[in-house]
């Protein structure tokens, strides 16, 4: 079994995993960070989105061994201690979640979207969420949450 080492939420981790272990499985089962979810098996729902070296990625569509040496951030690593990330706060403030299952991946995608874009509007936010499916909210309050957080993150 290969040994894989990476930094997850600022902590160096290392484990022996079989080559066919998905990154999401490594995160959920080995590290017991269960905030990253699995909602589909065809790489579309986005419940598993994490940041790999600062870019959002679907952790169900990566092998753990591909993350060798990478910096991974999961939803558990987004807040600074007890200080929630503006995106997290904004989802609560704007009712951007209902059942919560897609929410963690949605927040991770949204943070990357805002980090990489200027002047996000309703249309570009909606397009930027192409890789995340929510069944509860109709997306309206998710878009609102991201708009509000984007202002906060710029400030």
């Amino acid at each position: 079994m290969p040994t894989v080492s990476m930094t997850v939420n600022g902590k160096q981790v290392s484990a022996d995993v079989s080559s066919n272990t998905l990154l999401v499985t490594f995160i959920r089962e080995n590290l017991r960070l269960t905030g990253t979810h699995v909602g589909c098996d065809t790489s579309q729902c986005g419940a598993c989105v994490v940041h790999v070296n600062g870019n959002s990625a679907k952790s169900c569509t990566m092998l753990a061994v591909q993350a060798e040496g990478a910096e991974i951030t999961t939803i558990e690593g987004l807040a600074k201690g007890n200080d929630l990330h503006p995106m997290q706060k904004s989802f609560q403030e704007n009712h951007g979640l209902q059942c919560g299952f897609c929410t963690t991946g949605m927040i991770m995608s949204a943070v990357d979207l805002v980090n990489k874009s200027d002047d996000l509007d309703d249309t570009s936010i909606r397009e930027g969420l192409e890789g995340n499916i929510c069944r509860c909210t109709g997306y309206q309050n998710i878009v609102k949450s991201i708009q509000a957080a984007a202002k906060e993150m710029e400030a």
Binding site: Q44, V52, S56, T61, M62, L113, E130, G131
Partner: peptide, 9 residues
């Protein structure tokens, strides 16, 4: 192509 996450990988 695909979505933002697909495009990142």
């Amino acid at each position: 192509i695909g979505d933002a996450q697909v495009r990142n990988r």
